[in-house]
Write a protein that binds this DNA or RNA. Sequence first.
DNA 1: CAGTATCCCCTTAGATACTG
DNA 2: CAGTATCTAAGGGGATACTG
Lengths: 119, 119
Amino acid sequence: MEIEPKLCKVEDALGILVGKWKPIILLNLMKEGTQRFSELQRNLPGITQKMLTKQLRELEDEDIIKRVVYPQVPPKVEYSITEYGKTIEPILADMHEWGMKHTQHKQQKAQREVKSVSF
Amino acid sequence: MEIEPKLCKVEDALGILVGKWKPIILLNLMKEGTQRFSELQRNLPGITQKMLTKQLRELEDEDIIKRVVYPQVPPKVEYSITEYGKTIEPILADMHEWGMKHTQHKQQKAQREVKSVSF
DNA sequence: CAGTATCCCCTTAGATACTG
DNA sequence: CAGTATCTAAGGGGATACTG
């Protein structure tokens, strides 16, 4: 690999994904496609309006998602992944895969530790 | 791709990398190999002892790095990437690559915005 | 419906000083 | 050398109420 630590851009990519709700928001939009604000809120149990708004704005600022406002009453706002945003999908997929293996790894480690102290 | 959002393990992988110094610590250990506490501190300008200790402990807890204490005076402690820890290297590489493209993307976007308001 | 505006808590991270 | 311990500031995130 050989990434020169001084020139490291990992943080830049990380910054997009960091935020309690960002990965799950992205996965939702990627899987379900375009959604309204209220739909997203329904699909993200526990998120508050404030947090949903904030995370969406940040993702929008990075060009990962697109926000379309329909000038009508009551308001209608739709969110979707941009073409550019789709380029981050493989990274999410890899992280998901690694995360699954890591869950396993930790379970195995925990098992070993239990055995070594039991008698 | 199709990650089921409810079963998403992205957060688990993300948790390993999140922390102001973790990516750079990992890249240093991956590139330079085994290093002592003081070497790491030298290679990470600006980090405090407290932060370095904390991030190292967290990475150690996740089995990503290994800590070896030599019982001598003055103390000598060496840190290195575990075999298991190396499995996260491709993800760092991908994030670095994506991060470089993202930097470009943002610059191009900024250029377009400057042009559209100039005359 | 799709947000703002407040208030509040907790965690993260930095600065600094101390120790086996 | 390789850490702890303590204090503090800043920000992330939650609960709740209000609005065009």
